[in-house]
Structures are given as C-alpha cells and as structure tokens.
Design a protein around this nucleic acid. Structure first.
Length: 276
DNA sequence: CTGTAATCCTGCGAGC
DNA sequence: TGCTCGCAGGATTACA
C-alpha cells in the first residue's frame, strides 16, 4: 500500500514525535511479520534514543544511539505514535513505549511488512544498496535512458523495479505513465529519448504532488499522526476504470501488465506511438 | 541472464 | 442474508 509519498509522510510526521525519545519497553505480538522480530534484538534497543528517522525508497530507517531499525510497511502497515493508554487496534505487532508515555506502534493487517534491528549500520547500508536504485528525484537523465534502452520489459515493470528507481509502486507508476502520455505496456527499448525524459520528469512530478497531499489513502494507509492522505482525490487513472479521462474524456481501461492491474487512457496513452 | 508467476496474509466488495 | 471468489498499495523466490 504505502509507496514513497506515504512513507515520506509517515517519516515527516513521526520525527517530532519520537526524535530524542528513548525506548522504555518493547512489546511484540506473537504473530510473525515477514521478517519475524528476534527476541535477541529487544534487550539491545531498550534505553536507546531515536537519533534520526530517514526514508530510502519505501523503507524507513530509525537510527538509534547504536545501530538502527529498518522497517517496511508492506501493503497494510501503519506506523503511528499514540498515547500508551489509548486502545491499540488488532494486528498491532510492535509497541515501543517511549519516555513520554506515548507508544510508537507498528500495525499491519496482512503482515507483509517487516521490522529488523541492525546493530551495525554498515550492514544496513549494504542491505539497502543492493536492493535499491537511486531516489526518484533529480535522477541522472543518462542513467534513466540507459535503464530503458536496455530492457524488453514493459514500462510498468521497469517503474516497479526498485533497483531502477526506489519508491515507485503501482499507483504512482500508473499515474506517471498517464502524465507522460505513455502506455504502461510499451516496451522500454522502444521509447524515444524525449519519451524517456518525459517519463522521468512525470515520475518526479507525481511523487512531489502526492507528498504535498500527504499521500493517497485507498483503504488502510494513515500517516504517522493518524491522518489520511488526500492524493486519491487527484488520481487521473488509478482506480478509475470505466470513468472518463480527466484530459480527453475517453474511458479509462484496466489491464494486467507485469502481473499488476494497470490503469490508463487509451487515447492519451496509445500503445503504438502515433501523433500526439 | 531476462522476464514472469507464485507465494506470503487478511479483509472486503461483487456476484450468485 | 449468506456464501464463495477474486482482488488489493509489496518484495522475494522459484522457475521457464
């Protein structure tokens, strides 16, 4: 669920709520996340303070005095700070009690999320760098052109590939293709240089706009302070199958591309490059 | 090597 | 109303 704009919003929300706060206690549910929390990680983090909160792609890095926590929200993850006395919903898997009687809570219905403690931040950097390409802002034009020129995969698959760009998911891949006027099934290598450049700028602009709106809430997503996002109101194609294109009024179609539902306007985003 | 499909999990809406 | 089916924002692995 959460893609880059949602994760960025969570991180921004949480910074003033947890930085320089120490961890008094950690409670772990018995249900296992994708990477089950190891009992051996609990004692080392007790008493430590949150020193920084960063985002890399869709990953959240909470740096402690020693080492760091690496979190991923998966499809339904929620990371919030609430008074420790308040009711924590079901599927709350981690509860970090802070020194101000608030709790940092990790809730995840589908349990596709993960939380890991790295005692050595060098290990964490390696872990991230082998999985992730550059952040999708200010991307080098030659790099992105090379990524597309060398592949037979559809655009949709390239945009979802975290080793090409870190942070784009299904929603923003579709929205970026629409902004660029490119069909999501177009094969990467068939794009002209201006088309590739258009796509790179479209990705950047849609992500910036979504961050401005605190991300998109379809169902589960909430920010670190519990607020919903607003960008779902600005979707041009995602989840708008059968409704008119906001630009040309053609009906939005939905196809399965690269294993994911992909929404596009057949007129604004022709599969065969015609005049446009 | 490159690209696609199955897998992990729960909840919800559509359709019968 | 109640049931089953298919699908959902992600990442990893296993396979063609």
């Amino acid at each position: 669920m959460p893609e880059l704009p949602e994760v960025e919003t969570v991180v921004r929300d949480l910074r003033p709520l947890i930085l320089d706060r120490s961890i008094r206690r950690l409670r772990v549910s018995r249900r296992k996340l994708r990477n089950p929390w190891q009992a051996a990680w609990t004692t080392p983090i007790l008493g430590q303070r949150f020193k920084a909160l960063d985002r890399r792609g869709k990953w959240i890095i909470a740096r402690l005095d020693v080492g760091a926590l690496l979190l991923h929200l998966g499809m339904t993850g929620q990371l919030t700070v609430q008074p420790a006395s308040s009711h924590s919903g079901n599927h709350t898997h981690l509860r970090f009690l802070l020194d101000n009687d608030c709790e940092l809570r990790f809730r995840d219905v589908r349990r596709f999320g993960s939380a890991t403690y790295f005692a050595a931040t060098a290990d964490l950097d390696v872990h991230l760098n082998v999985r992730l390409g550059p952040e999708p802002f200010g991307v080098d034009a030659d790099y992105f052109r090379a990524c597309l020129r060398s592949t037979q995969r559809p655009l949709k698959a390239v945009l979802l590939d975290q080793t090409v760009l870190a942070g784009v998911g299904n929603i923003y891949a579709d929205e970026a293709c629409h902004r660029a006027g490119l069909h999501p099934a177009r094969v990467g290598a068939t794009l002209s240089v201006p088309e590739v450049d258009r796509l790179r700028l479209a990705v950047e602009s849609v992500l910036r706009a979504a961050i401005e709106s605190r991300g998109s809430t379809i169902r589960d997503y909430i920010g670190g302070s519990g607020l919903r996002g607003r960008f779902q109101d600005d979707f041009a194609v995602y989840g708008r199958t059968g409704r008119p294109c906001v630009r040309c009024e053609s009906l939005i179609l939905c196809l399965r591309i690269a294993g994911r539902s992909s929404h596009f306007c057949p007129r604004c985003q022709p599969l065969r490059p015609g005049r446009r």
